[in-house]
């Protein structure tokens, strides 16, 4: 019962505002060192961490050998209702599925074809996400009572986020009502995207087309 209550409270159902105060007072807390190599070296003499408190390490910053920026971000983007553990399980199983499919293809392939098959699921996923990066975004701008969808240029991190979000939304729709499992469809999408195919790539191209069509509004950019 208590765990249920705790999870209920965790989802911040009652409060709708963002948290204004952190449990860590920024005056006395500093970020921890999470890199093992850095950890072995002594701190600089003028480093504030010599005499201030350290924050606890985040669960997705543990120095495991498979730590990967893109995968961690994908896990965060796919998280629903604060259930990051579930999301992590989904994404990692998607990686497993990718690896199994690639391995089967690799085992069947001839010696020459084998070189072109990427077995590392992390690389496949990263390439897939990279291929989905949009070049522009559409943002509503209100001028004279009408809202125009105005194309804006975006930075690398936002492009990455939007690529993941597009993919996540497509996978969520496909896995509605238990049609497929989220991990299965995510694996399929990542694999397809790594070869510039699939619904996410289509969605990206659609977005590019709309941006192209709305280029006349570009002067509305404030």
């Amino acid at each position: 019962m208590t765990t249920k209550l705790a999870r209920f409270a965790q989802k911040r159902w009652i409060s709708s505002t963002t948290s204004t105060s952190n449990m860590y007072d920024p005056r006395v807390f500093r970020d921890p060192v999470t890199n093992v190599q850095e950890l072995r070296k002594p701190l600089d003499s003028d480093d504030e961490r010599n005499f201030l408190f350290l924050k606890a390490m985040k669960s997705d910053a543990t120095p495991v050998f498979y730590r990967d920026h893109v995968i961690d971000k994908l896990i965060r983007v796919c998280t629903k209702d604060g259930e990051k553990e579930t999301s992590r399980k989904n994404v990692l199983s998607a990686l497993e599925i990718i690896k199994r499919r690639q391995y089967k293809a690799w085992a069947k392939a001839s010696e020459e074809e084998k070189k072109s098959i990427e077995l590392d699921p992390f690389l496949v996923a990263k390439k897939g996400i990279k291929n989905c990066h949009p070049l522009m975004k559409l943002q509503g701008v209100t001028r004279g009572g009408t809202t125009y969808q105005v194309p804006f240029p975006i930075e690398e991190p936002e492009a990455e986020f939007r690529a993941m979000k597009m993919m996540r939304d497509i996978c969520r729709v496909r896995s509605k009502h238990g049609e497929t499992h989220f991990k299965d469809i995510l694996a399929t999408e990542l694999l397809a995207a790594s070869q510039n195919e699939g619904s996410t790539i289509q969605a990206k191209q659609e977005l590019h087309k709309t941006c192209e069509a709305n280029r006349a509004y570009a002067h509305y950019r404030a």
Partner: peptide
């Protein structure tokens, strides 16, 4: 060749 990533 089951461990595919270099790190592993």
């Amino acid at each position: 060749n089951w461990l595919a990533s270099k790190a592993a």
